[in-house]
Each structure stands twice: as C-alpha cells, then as structure tokens.
C-alpha cells in the first residue's frame, strides 16, 4: 500500500507544469504520475519521494492537495501480465477506479498503482493470489 497525493488542476495553460516545477524546486522526486481529466479540470495523481514536503510546497503555491491510499503492485513483465493482475480484482468483483504505471528501473517487472473501491479486500485477494504488493520500503528503492 502507498500514499498517493492528488492535486486539483484547473484547466488553464501551464498548471500541470507549474505543479511539477513546484515539486522540482522543493527537491521532491516523482516516482509515478497520471492525469485524470474532464473538459473542465484535471486531477494530477502522484507518488513522490516525500509526501509531506510535496504537500507543503504545493499548498504554499496555492494548490489543493489530498492524500489517498493506492495499492502498488508488481506485474510480471510478460504478455498478459497486467491482464492476469486485473483479473484477480475482476474475479473478486472489485471495481477498479484507475490505474497508472511507475517508471521502473527493473526491466523484468512493471509496477502499477491501483485505486479500487475497496482497498482492504483488494489486498486480501492479491495476497491470496500471490500477486506482489510493494511495501513502502520497497517503493523507496524504485
């Protein structure tokens, strides 16, 4: 399980860049990132090296920031790898809200952040199916 920070991005030129600049200036590393957007605004979701520092820097720059939990899973880097992982959730009737990938240095695996409706249940079924859930410490090493 990992804590992700989400940032509200008004659909105005340069706001995503501004958020990322803010993090760079605060010396925060971005490990994974995704943008969910509608026609009117976007939600920037990030997994970073230091949540506290990131939140403070972003809030000081006027952004709305929220922390939420996601599950970070290692997916075998082979055909159908992701399918197999998602099938575990599907079989247990757990709704997937969104998913995005990490930039990984290990060539033999892909790492994804998954947000589901019921995090606890998802962890249970992942564990029961021997999916590899990354701990906070393991995340640090990415």
């Amino acid at each position: 399980m990992a804590v992700q920070i989400s940032v509200f991005i008004e659909n105005k030129e340069g706001r995503i860049k501004k958020a990322i600049d803010t993090l760079a200036k605060a010396d925060v590393n971005i490990r994974a990132l995704s943008v969910g957007d509608t026609t009117k605004y976007g939600i920037l979701r990030l997994i970073v090296s230091d949540n506290e520092k990131a939140t403070k820097a972003l809030e000081d720059d006027g952004f709305i920031v929220k922390e939420s939990e996601v599950i970070v899973v290692s997916v075998p880097d082979k055909p159908n790898g992701l399918n197999t992982t998602l099938a575990i959730l599907d079989d247990a009737d757990i709704n997937l809200e969104y998913i995005y990938a990490f930039v990984s240095s290990q060539p033999e695996e892909a790492i994804v952040a998954i947000k589901v409706e019921n995090t606890e249940k998802a962890i249970e079924v992942f564990e029961a199916n021997d999916a590899k859930i990354l701990t906070e410490e393991e995340l640090e090493k990415i």
């Binding site: 969910g36 509608t38 939600i43 979701r45 709305i64 929220k66 809200e97």
Partner: peptide, 15 residues
C-alpha cells in the same frame, strides 16, 4: 472555488 474538503482523487466523486 474548490476546496480541500470538496476535492477528491476520483473524477466520479468530483462529479
């Protein structure tokens, strides 16, 4: 103006 209380990481919730 949005606020921390209104904001969610899920678009569904924002809607």
């Amino acid at each position: 103006e949005a606020s921390k209380e209104l904001f969610s990481d899920e678009i569904k919730e924002m809607e």
